[in-house]
Simulated scan of single mutants.
Amino acid sequence: MAHSLRVSDGFLQQLDLVLKDDHSLPMDLHAELKSCFTGTKPTPTIPFTLLRKLHIFLETKGFPVYLHELLEGAEIFTPEVKLPERNPQLVARLDKIKAKMANEEYRRITRNVNCQQINRYGTIGDVGKQVRSAKAVVVTIFNFLVTVVAAFACAYLGSQYLFTEPAACVLSGLIVASVVGLAELYVLVRTMEGELGEM
């Protein structure tokens, strides 16, 4: 906060010119003004309290020169505020609290994010289920084909003992393979109905 004025070098000379008459400055006021202008300061500064005393003195003695005329060209002096050094323990504690709050904020933001999510349609676990169901379908189709082919081969080879013509053997193999295939399809449909009913 500003508590003094930075005045020009001619302030004291103008003040001396004003006070040249028989009105002399009181000793304490003169000493205070002198102390403001002596020293190693690059530009002299005068506190507001001293300016108030000077103003009261000029008014009581009836000087025709006003204080603002003397202070022409002066500027408010605001000293640089020196902040005290922060306690290193306090700084470390604040850093720890900031890190903790940042982690909590991160957890709050990412609490509904699933790192296993592959896309908006499902997760990696869903892909595993789909692969298992596709594997089951492939095994079922392979099992169906092997069963039908094996039934045809058995019927064809077994009918060679009964029939001498190859056409009769093929026809008996086809009939047996068709019956076995239809039975496999029936069992497959019943199984799929049961799985769909459980879903």
Rank of each mutant, 00 (worst) to 15 (best):
L19V: 13
L19C: 14
L19G: 00
L19S: 12
L19H: 04
L19F: 06
D21E: 12
D21K: 09
D21Q: 13
D21A: 12
D22V: 12
H23P: 03
H23D: 11
S24F: 09
S24W: 10
S24A: 11
L25S: 02
L25N: 03
L25I: 11
L25Q: 02
L25F: 01
P26E: 08
P26L: 10
P26S: 08
P26T: 06
P26R: 08
P26G: 05
M27G: 10
M27L: 11
M27F: 13
M27R: 15
M27N: 15
M27A: 14
D28N: 08
D28H: 11
D28Q: 14
D28A: 13
D28W: 03
L29P: 04
L29Y: 08
L29Q: 05
L29N: 03
H30S: 13
H30T: 12
A31T: 14
A31N: 14
A31V: 08
A31Q: 15
A31G: 06
A31R: 13
A31H: 10
E32H: 06
E32P: 00
E32I: 00
E32L: 02
L33D: 02
L33Y: 03
L33H: 04
K34Y: 11
K34H: 10
K34W: 08
K34N: 12
S35C: 01
S35D: 11
S35M: 06
S35R: 14
S35P: 00
S35K: 15
C36A: 11
C36S: 08
C36Y: 04
C36G: 01
C36Q: 09
F37W: 05
F37Q: 06
F37T: 14
F37K: 04
F37C: 03
T38P: 00
T38I: 10
T38E: 03
T38F: 01
T38S: 09
T38R: 14
T38W: 00
T38Q: 08
G39H: 02
G39S: 09
G39E: 02
T40I: 13
T40S: 12
T40R: 11
T40E: 07
K41Q: 05
K41F: 05
K41A: 12
K41H: 09
K41D: 07
K41R: 09
K41S: 11
P42F: 00
P42T: 13
P42K: 13
P42V: 06
T43C: 02
T43W: 03
T43N: 07
T43V: 13
T43Y: 12
P44C: 05
P44N: 05
P44Y: 07
T45G: 03
T45K: 14
T45I: 01
I46E: 01
I46S: 04
I46G: 07
P47Q: 02
P47N: 02
P47W: 06
F48N: 11
F48I: 04
F48Y: 14
T49L: 06
T49N: 08
T49V: 09
L50S: 05
L50C: 05
L50P: 03
L50I: 06
L51D: 05
R52I: 05
K53A: 06
K53P: 01
K53W: 04
K53C: 00
L54V: 06
L54T: 07
L54H: 06
L54K: 09
L54N: 03
L54W: 01
